[in-house]
């Protein structure tokens, strides 16, 4: 128990002192994971909507595939992206390995299935309610999918948040493709891993508590936005 108390106090001190290194690490974490979330929403949500509304061969296979890929191990994604972006790999010429861009790519791949699968579920529920009305108005399936996404934008924040939560909490992928380079690709989770391996467990835990606080803050903001939106639009 003593160690946890120490960590809590340490976390408080770190935040209160406005530590510049901590601030830059938190900023980079948010930048990388929010970018990945945004990209994953842009890719995953239309994909999920099409899976919900579409009728095409292989649809069920794709649904099962995306549901399964929700559990993608971050290390595997990291390794895959590493091999792609490595100088010896097919995309090596862009020199993206060990940059935040590489981390964004890896996290995007990691969470697209989560966003897509959850969006599909949510859009499918809405489709049941809207289907006849939209078809009566003459909406094509593609059009209906887009309409349902727009209409469900507030409840879809949940799938975005699930993706964000996974992205900001994972360490396996960013460690491999980012390299945990001090001041360049070091984020909250890789710092925690580093401090743990240095045996500075109180500091590692303190950073973990700060990470949890950051995630909670993002979720609170999203929750309030959704509350407001639901009040406004019903």
């Amino acid at each position: 128990m003593g160690e946890i108390t120490t960590s809590l106090m340490l976390a408080g001190e770190l935040v209160a002192s406005g530590d510049a290194r901590l601030a830059s690490i938190v900023t980079l974490s948010l930048q990388v994971s929010l970018s990945a979330t945004l990209l994953a929403c842009l890719i995953g949500m239309p994909l999920g909507a099409l899976l919900a509304v579409g009728r095409f061969p292989g649809r069920h296979t794709l649904i099962v595939l995306f549901n399964g890929l929700m559990g993608l191990p971050p290390v595997v994604v990291g390794l895959l992206v590493y091999l792609l972006l490595s100088r010896a790999g097919p995309l090596g010429q862009f020199g993206l390995l060990f940059t935040p861009a590489a981390m964004i790519i890896a996290q995007t791949i990691l969470i697209v299935p989560i966003v897509a699968a959850l969006a599909r579920q949510s859009v499918e529920d809405a489709w049941r309610e809207y289907r006849e009305q939209l078809r009566s108005l003459g909406a094509s399936r593609l059009r209906a999918a887009m309409t349902l996404l727009w209409d469900g934008r507030f409840s879809l924040t949940t799938s975005g948040l699930a993706g964000f939560g996974r992205a900001i909490a994972e360490v396996g992928a960013v460690m491999i493709v980012g390299g945990n380079i001090d001041g360049v690709t070091r984020v909250m989770t890789t710092t925690i891993a580093l401090e743990t391996s240095k045996g500075d467990l109180p500091l590692a835990l303190a950073l973990g508590l700060i990470l949890i606080a950051v995630v909670l803050a993002v979720n609170t903001a999203a929750f309030m936005l959704r509350q407001w939106a639901e009040q406004r639009w019903g």
Partner: peptide, 25 residues
């Protein structure tokens, strides 16, 4: 709808540029 998409795309590009830009200079 178009407005939102443009906004999203803009945010996205900015984020990517920020992230890679810092690395490139």
């Amino acid at each position: 709808m178009t407005r939102l998409r443009t906004l999203l795309a803009a945010c996205c590009t900015t984020a990517l540029l920020l992230a890679t830009g810092a690395a490139a200079q």
